[in-house]
Amino acid sequence: MKNFVIPETDYMVPGHLACPGCGASLGMRFALKALGEKTMVVVPACCWSIIAGPFPYSAVKVPLFHTAFETAASVASGLRAALDMQGQDDVTVMAWAGDGGTFDIGLQALSGAAERNEDFIYVCYDNEAYMNTGIQRSSATPEGAWTTTTPEGHVKDRPKKNIVDILAAHRIPYVATASVAYPHDFIRKLQKAQSMHGTRFIHLLSPCPPGWKIPSDDSIEIARLAVQTKLFPLYEIEDGEKVTINLEPDGLPVRHYFEKQGRFRYLTDADYERIQRDVDHRWEILKRKAEWAKE
């Protein structure tokens, strides 16, 4: 990572409708810095369909296709095919969808596109619930989290869906996790993805202050804690098999991450212990996969 420079030119500009401290708006800023001017963005129904700008605002300086909830990967497939017919192979198509539009309603379109190995980059900015409609649980909502549809006494009792393994199982060229707290890593991964062809998927953890019940100036710190507690490791998988861990976390106890967020206020010490065991277990599995890939 030495001498890695974050591109200075911005294609996301002031004048957007994100909440203060929104991880997804910071994520887009980094993504467009990395991919550059010749990028088309496909946004399904999600926070970003609002952030992109109601008149007179316009948050991005590149073409943007605002589509129906379940269709980001299908629209990206169509745009890519038409660009190929026109010989515009220097244009990057990037689908940019939330966790609802990726883990839930958009999964069928995404799986179909990945199986066909459609030539686009798909970034899921994951804020772990349907935030734009008022914090309803999604299959990306972590175990123990409060949402308006998993209220007190009924907080979510199932683990978060592992979208990275699902995409890797399609044996596409590139799947990676990223965090807004590690912009160098995120930008490097986007540029690496851009240099490849086929379906490339990046899972970006994006804190949401209103939905996570955190102060808006804690977003980055909490995103960093997710990585440092091994809850959200930074790694990449090439061709469905070759696992590389990009950052060795400090291994802080998971409660450091949970205790800072209002949405986890119903977790007990017993929950912390159980989740810690699960996180340690999954980290071991990931490490073994990475070691196996080195052999």
């Binding site: 309603i105 008022g134 309803q136 999604s138 299959s139 308006t148 549809t149």
Partner: peptide
């Protein structure tokens, strides 16, 4: 979830014997 029907979904989680989240 879909606006403007979200309040119904939210209240249902408080009042219905069973409320389920579809994908």
């Amino acid at each position: 979830p879909i606006t403007p029907a979200n309040w119904l979904y939210h209240y249902a989680t408080q009042r219905f014997p069973t409320t389920l989240p579809a994908t």
